[in-house]
Amino acid sequence: MVFNFAANQNFFLSLVTEDATPLSEALRSSPWLPHLAQWANFLRNHDELDLGRLPAAARKRVFAELGPEPKMQLYGRGLRRRLAPMLAGDRRRLELSFSLMLSLPGTPVLWYGDELGMGEDLPLHERQSVRTPMQWSDEPHGGFTRAPEPFRPVVSKAPFGFPQVNVEHQRGDPTSLLNWMERMVRMRKECPELGWGEWKLLRVKPPNVLALRYDWKDETLVVLHNLSGKACEVGFSPGGPPARLVHLLSEAHSTPGKAGRHRVTLEGYGYRWFRMEPLATG
């Protein structure tokens, strides 16, 4: 597997500009990989969010929205922050980000604790800010250790510290980010098209929507993501004979109109995972 740094950096640029073009161009220009190789798609990892491949003006734009304070930045090119505080704990943008990561061509890679919405500890040195102990419970040291002191401080300040954000609390809450993520991972495992299928970008309007089609064996998957905070209507043709689009995450299915085209309304930061179901003939 090869980390797709270009897609990672351009995703955050697309998110802050509410324009899918940077991400779609990064995907389109990705180098060819052998059949058994995979792109590793990620949002955050154990280092800074490296934005060094973006033009200076674009990098400045991402800094301004996701890490405006100098202490949040590193090496003049990156952000030493966790995903949840970068996105101000906005559940809509967190879900959009994870849904996109899980449905990009390749294999998703998740940094521990992001499935909970853990925060960072900026007073720690450089990259150590995002390498704090896992927050298992609201017990001392987040349930990570019974030692008098952990090897590194556990994030404790609200709203992302262990008293508020921990595995134990979220396991018992069916609406928690952790339980949502578990459902999404299960769905990802039920969609082999995402890991093995041939993919292509679909032409859609408006430009804030990213649309991908995957084909594997006799199955086709279409995924849509609205990178804007405003609702929009998306008109597109998934290709092939007219087909019903069955939404895998809810009952929001879509029936084709003239010439097999679909019109789907996406809420702000909305997403859809559709499986194509050919219409009965005769």
Results as ranks from 00 to 15, higher is better:
M134T: 03
V109A: 15
P105M: 06
S99A: 14
A84R: 02
M72I: 09
Q73H: 01
L102N: 07
G52C: 12
R59A: 12
R91S: 14
G106W: 02
G89I: 12
P133R: 05
M101K: 06
M134S: 02
E120H: 13
T107C: 15
F98D: 11
P123A: 04
P123G: 06
A64S: 07
P108N: 07
H141I: 04
E95F: 13
E139H: 03
Q73L: 00
E65N: 10
W136R: 05
A84D: 00
P133E: 04
R77D: 12
D90T: 06
G89D: 07
P68M: 09
G142L: 01
E115F: 08
K71Q: 14
K60R: 15
F63C: 01
W111I: 04
H141Y: 06
Q135C: 00
R59V: 10
G78C: 02
L66A: 01
G117D: 04
L87F: 04
E95N: 14
G106P: 06
L66N: 00
G143V: 08
V109R: 11
S137A: 11
P70R: 05
W136P: 02
D138S: 09
G143E: 07
E139W: 03
G78D: 01
V130F: 08
P140D: 04
F144D: 12
F144G: 07
G117Q: 01
G89K: 08
L122N: 08
F144S: 08
L122H: 12
E69A: 15
D90Y: 03
G52S: 15
G52I: 14
E69N: 11
M118R: 08
M101R: 04
G78Q: 02
R59Y: 04
E95D: 15
D114W: 13
R146M: 11
E69D: 13
P123F: 05
G76C: 08
E126H: 11
K71C: 15
R92N: 11
R91I: 14
D90G: 00
R93L: 00
Q135T: 04
P140F: 02
R127G: 04
R92L: 09
L79I: 07
R93W: 04
T132P: 06
M86T: 10
R82V: 10
E95I: 08
L124G: 06
G142Q: 00
R82H: 10
F98I: 12
F63Y: 09
T145V: 04
F98E: 13
M86C: 12
P108H: 09
